[in-house]
């Protein structure tokens, strides 16, 4: 591949990036708009951010969302990791194909169907809808994403590491806890982050399974938008984008640093060897 800038390359980059990021840029720019009208620029101001922190309903929704996301991501990570372990280690049990299919089905299942089926289930067993039903629903659909991420790491995991641990006196559980988990931890963490973001921005499944007193931020934003968009919404979204972007940035910087360090170490070892 040549790294030259041709006119074709430049044009396609501009169009591609514009297509992806123009809406977001506009959204951010208008969050600093003086005017109440979202479409007319009337000068720079940060008043909507101040307004935001006085809006109790919005802050409540944000708090609910955060709690749901933290809790569901953590539980989904545990369950997803266990599922991934079962899928990679026990390759010969009966019904494995069915199990694999069932673990990964929610990846392609429409959100509406997941939301609706869970709603029907909660109604049928008489479970009061609210914070817990949203959390459970989010665990259900995000754990398969965790399973996929962790499984892809486990495939390349050298199982003799675990055997070596057992050989040196670990019970199978200790071997997992002391050797396997630390080694696959990066994958588990990125699985957790994926589950966390999925939960953070889910609207459809949460709407189906929420009850009184449990409104998540996406639900709140959606219902407010129907009453008319205010720059306040822009401000909330800008903050969300800021949080997510920072997270991604930090993760990639750490990852890159580690890669570079590793390469240097290996070169050094090879030279000394």
């Amino acid at each position: 591949m040549s790294g030259r800038w041709t006119w074709f390359n430049i044009t396609s980059v501009i169009f591609g990036m514009g297509f992806l990021y123009l809406p977001i840029v506009i959204l951010i720019v208008f969050s600093f708009n003086e005017s109440r009208l979202v479409t007319v620029w009337a000068g720079f101001s940060t008043k909507w951010y101040g307004e935001l922190f006085r809006n109790e309903a919005l802050l409540d929704a944000a708090w609910v969302t955060l709690r749901v996301a933290l809790l569901s991501a953590s539980i989904a990570t545990v369950l997803g990791t266990l599922a991934a372990l079962a899928l990679t280690r026990y390759t010969r049990f009966t019904g494995r194909t069915l199990f694999t299919g069932m673990v990964f089905a929610p990846l392609v299942m429409p959100d509406v169907i997941i939301g609706l089926s869970l709603l029907l289930l909660f109604v049928a067993i008489g479970f009061d809808r609210g914070f817990w039903t949203i959390t459970l629903a989010h665990i259900t659909f995000s754990m398969c994403f965790v399973a996929v991420v962790v499984q892809s790491r486990l495939v390349s995991f050298d199982e003799s590491l675990e055997e070596a641990a057992q050989d040196l006196g670990c019970t199978p559980f200790e071997a997992f806890y002391k050797v396997t988990l630390p080694v696959i931890l990066p994958a588990v963490v990125s699985g957790w982050m994926l589950a966390f973001t999925l939960s953070l921005d889910d609207l459809v499944i949460a709407s189906f399974n929420s009850g009184p007193g449990a409104t998540t931020l996406p639900m709140k934003i959606y219902s407010q938008v129907r009453l008319g968009v205010t720059p306040e919404i822009n401000a909330v979204c800008t903050i969300l984008i800021g949080i997510v972007a920072t997270g991604v940035l930090i993760a990639s910087i750490i990852g890159r640093r580690r890669d570079v360090q590793r390469k240097l170490d290996e070169q050094q070892a090879a030279q000394e060897g």
Binding site: L161, E163, A164, Q166, D167, L168, T171, V183
Partner: peptide
């Protein structure tokens, strides 16, 4: 069980804990 045997093994892949 392996962890109760007075035996140690050196693995082909070395299996060093990374």
């Amino acid at each position: 069980a392996p962890h109760n045997r007075p035996v140690n093994m050196m693995f082909q892949s070395y299996a060093l804990f990374p």
